[in-house]
């Protein structure tokens, strides 16, 4: 490693150290240091780049860093989505789900419906219930929630229990800020009731999570 891995918190030094990282372990350490430098925004393109390196340790660190940066990371993430690098795309979906920026909706919708990896579909389902809609107009919020609900309702039929579990979490997150009488809240509750029904849902932990979601919605 270079001197930049020492005490300096300067982004430029840390980016240089990152670019010179020779081994998988060095890359993980250099990625972690990127997140904690003096100008994290300057590191976004490099963090996005890490997602395509097929180094899970570094990718986990990069996703955490991108989520911490929030909306500022969304533009570069969307601009660099690589349809041909499955691994990179999967990590980007996880980052977008964690950030909750409405601009990520298209990607999350598509991931829950079509991604081959259950870990990507489960992250997308969680993200679809956690979009931050406060800054939008009433009508924009309604349209976005409509799409999130539709995607989650379809996700209820997923073959993997962990994705259906995440759908229950997503529905809770989507409905909790709404007044109980809101039509979107009714739709979310109807879907949760199906996830709680032993006749329709065979995995106990999914039914229990749906039950907790309904209890919380009733307590609003």
């Amino acid at each position: 490693m270079t001197a930049a891995s020492g005490d300096s918190r300067l982004a430029a030094d840390r980016i240089r150290a990152f670019e010179q990282a020779g081994s998988a372990e060095e890359l993980v350490a250099a990625t972690r240091r990127l997140i904690a430098c003096d100008d994290p925004l300057a590191t976004v393109p490099h963090l996005v780049q890490v997602l395509g390196f097929n180094n899970p340790g570094a990718a986990v660190a990069a996703v955490d860093g991108l989520i911490a940066l929030g909306p500022a990371a969304v533009g570069p993430l969307l601009a660099n989505l690589d349809a041909h690098n499955y691994g990179a795309r999967a990590w980007a979906v996880r980052a977008l789900a964690g950030i909750g920026d409405p601009r990520g909706l298209d990607v999350l919708e598509d991931a829950l419906a079509t991604d081959v990896g259950p870990s990507v579909r489960r992250a997308a389902a969680r993200g679809l219930g956690a979009l931050r809609l406060e800054a939008l107009t009433e009508e924009e919020r309604r349209q976005m929630r409509e799409r999130c609900l539709g995607a989650l309702e379809s996700g209820r039929g997923d073959g993997e229990w962990v994705v259906r579990y995440a759908v229950a979490v997503g529905l809770e997150g989507l409905a909790l800020p709404l007044p109980p009488a809101h039509p979107h809240s009714h739709r979310a509750e109807a879907c949760l009731q199906q996830l709680q029904d032993p006749e329709r849902e065979d995995t106990l932990v999914v039914r229990l999570r749906a039950g907790v979601a309904l209890k919380r919605l009733n307590a609003r």
Partner: peptide, 15 residues
């Protein structure tokens, strides 16, 4: 068939 408070702690860890 219903989650008690112990279960809820595990469910939150899963979330």
């Amino acid at each position: 068939d219903e989650a008690d408070s112990d279960d809820e702690a595990v469910l939150m860890a899963m979330d």
